[in-house]
Amino acid sequence: MLLTSYLLAGLAILLAWPVPVALSRAQWTARSPFTAMVVWQAIALAGGLSMIGAMLFWGLEPLGNSLLGALEGGARLVLGDADVASPGTIHIFALSTAALLGIHLVLTLIRATWRITRQRARHRHILSLLSQKSTANPGTLVLDHETPIAYCLPSFAGSVTVLSRGLVQRLNEDELQAVLAHEKAHLEQRHDLLLLAFASWNDALPWLPTAKHSLAAVQELVEMLADDAALRVVTAPVLLRALLTVATGALGEPAERGPAALPTAGTGGAPTEELSSHRLRRLLRPQPPLSTMVRSLILTAALLLLALPTTMLVAPGLFS
C-alpha cells in the first residue's frame, strides 16, 4: 500500500508539471487535434486519480495491504473491533485530504455547470429580443448589429448559431458556408462539454500547471477541429478570409459599436473564436496529418496512461 502511494504520488507530479508543459509545446498536436485532445483528457483523468489515490492509499495503509483489505479493516474499526489498529493523525489527515479533494472537484464541476446553464438561459433571452431567425439557414439567428460576430450557443434543448447582420453583409456565399460549417462542428461534436470539464478542472486547481496548460490547449484544439470540419466544405483560403473577418469582430470595432449591449460568446464552456498563431499557421502552411501508425501509438500510450493509476488503485498487490 505504501509503495503504491509513492508510485501514485510520483505519477501525479509528472502529470501535474513536466508532462503537460512538454505537450503544450509539442508541434505534432496541430497535425492531429483529435489525438491531442484524447491525450489531454488522459492526462487530466490520470492526474486526478493519481492525486486522490496517493493520499487515499497513504491514509489506508495501517488498515490493510490492499484497497479491499483496508476498506474491510476500516469497516471493522468503525464497528468497534479492538483487533484493528487505529490510523494515526497523519493517516487521518491523508484520508481527509483525499476526500476533500474528490468532493472539491465534483462540487466545482456541478457549480460550473449550474452557472453556465444560467448564463446561457439569460443569453438566449437577450437573443430573443435582439435577433431574428435566419430564413436561409435553419438553426441560425441573425443579430441586428454592424460588428462582424459569429458564435454558437450550445444547448440540449436546441443549439443555435448566432451571426451578426454586419458579418452576413461582409461575407460572400462560400465564406458564410465556411463560418456555418465551423460553428456546426462545435455544436455537433459538443466541444462545449469538453471545455466545461477542463474549465472546471482549472477552477478547482488554478495553481496546478496541468490545469492551466490543458485548458489553453483544449480551447485551441476544439477550434482546429472545427476548422478541419469547415475545410471539408470550403478551401483553406476561403475559410481563412472568413475567420479573419470574424476575428476582426472579436477584437472589437469601437467606431461601429452602438449603444445596445451585444451578447458575447463568453458564456462559459462555449468555444471561443480566437484566431491564434497556431491556427493561422496550419491554414497558411498546411502540414500532412500524422500517419495512422503514429496516431495509433499515441492513442495507445494515452489509454495506457489512464489505465496505470486505475490498475494501481484496484490491484496494488501487483506493484508492492
Rank of each mutant, 00 (worst) to 15 (best):
R120C: 13
N172I: 05
G64H: 11
L244W: 02
A216G: 12
G88E: 08
S200P: 05
L313K: 10
L60H: 00
L49I: 12
R241E: 14
P87W: 00
T245E: 10
R170N: 06
N172K: 11
T235L: 11
Q177D: 02
D174H: 09
W28L: 13
M293P: 05
N172G: 10
G252S: 05
D192C: 11
L280M: 09
L180G: 03
M293A: 13
L215Q: 11
N202L: 13
G166T: 02
A157V: 01
D192G: 10
A70V: 06
Q177M: 04
D192T: 03
L129C: 07
L3R: 08
P33A: 04
E253T: 07
A75H: 06
P286Q: 02
E146S: 07
R282D: 08
M1A: 10
F319Y: 07
T29E: 10
I103L: 15
G158K: 14
R118P: 08
R232S: 00
A261M: 02
L56E: 04
V142Y: 01
I90S: 10
R31D: 06
T300H: 02
A181Q: 00
E273D: 10
A315K: 00
W28S: 05
G73W: 01
G258F: 04
I298H: 03
L239N: 01
Y6I: 08
W201F: 13
T248Q: 15
A121W: 03
T310W: 10
V233R: 09
G48E: 13
H213D: 01
E253F: 11
A211S: 14
A121E: 15
E175K: 13
H123A: 15
L304F: 04
